[in-house]
Amino acid sequence: MNPLARRAVAELVGTAFLVMAVVGSGIAAQRLSPHDTGLQLLENSLATGAVLVALILALQPVSASFNPVVTLVERALGLIGSREAGALVTAQFVGGAIGAVLANLMFDLDAVSWSGHERSGGGIWLGEVVATVGLVLLVFGSLRGGRPESVALVVGGYIAAAYWFTSSTSFANPAVTVARMFSDTFAGIAPSSVPMFVLMQLIGGVLALGLVRFLFAAHVPEVVR
Rank of each mutant, 00 (worst) to 15 (best):
F216Y: 15
S45G: 11
E128W: 03
G204K: 03
A97T: 01
L143D: 04
F140V: 01
V53T: 07
V139F: 02
R119F: 11
G127Y: 03
D36L: 09
I159G: 06
A47N: 12
M1D: 12
R6W: 02
P148M: 02
I56C: 12
A161H: 10
F197V: 04
R83H: 14
L215K: 10
V223N: 10
S25D: 08
A179H: 01
A97C: 10
G78Y: 03
A28F: 10
F216Q: 06
V73C: 09
I189G: 10
A10V: 07
L137C: 11
A208Y: 07
G86R: 04
S168P: 02
V154E: 07
A152G: 02
A162I: 09
V23C: 08
A175I: 06
D108R: 12
Q30T: 15
V73G: 01
R83N: 15
V130C: 08
T169W: 13
G49N: 03
P191V: 08
V198D: 05
T166I: 00
A47K: 10
E128V: 09
V130L: 13
D184C: 11
E43T: 13
F140D: 01
G157L: 11
G116Y: 09
S120V: 13
V89I: 06
A100Q: 04
R147D: 08
V198A: 13
G123V: 04
V178G: 01
I80E: 01
R83E: 14
A217L: 06
L105S: 10
F197Q: 13
N2Q: 07
T90W: 07
H35V: 14
V198L: 07
S150H: 15
I189D: 03
A50D: 14
G49E: 11
F165R: 10
L105E: 03
E74C: 05
A28N: 11
Q60S: 12
L46E: 04
P61D: 03
S150V: 15
G141Y: 06
V223W: 09
T132W: 06
P61H: 03
R225N: 15
F140I: 04
A217R: 13
E43A: 15
A160D: 11
A87R: 06
G205V: 00
A8E: 00
N67V: 08
A76Q: 11
S120I: 14
G116C: 09
E128R: 09
R147N: 14
W164L: 15
G121C: 06
V194R: 04
L202F: 14
F107T: 10
R75Q: 10
A131L: 08
G96I: 05
F171P: 05
N67Y: 02
G210W: 07
I27S: 00
S150Y: 13
V94T: 06
I159L: 07
A179Q: 02
P221Q: 12
F186Y: 12
A161E: 13
M181W: 10
L143F: 00
V94Y: 07
R6V: 00
R119A: 14
V223P: 05
V136C: 00
S192H: 10
P34G: 06
A5Y: 04
A16D: 09
V136T: 03
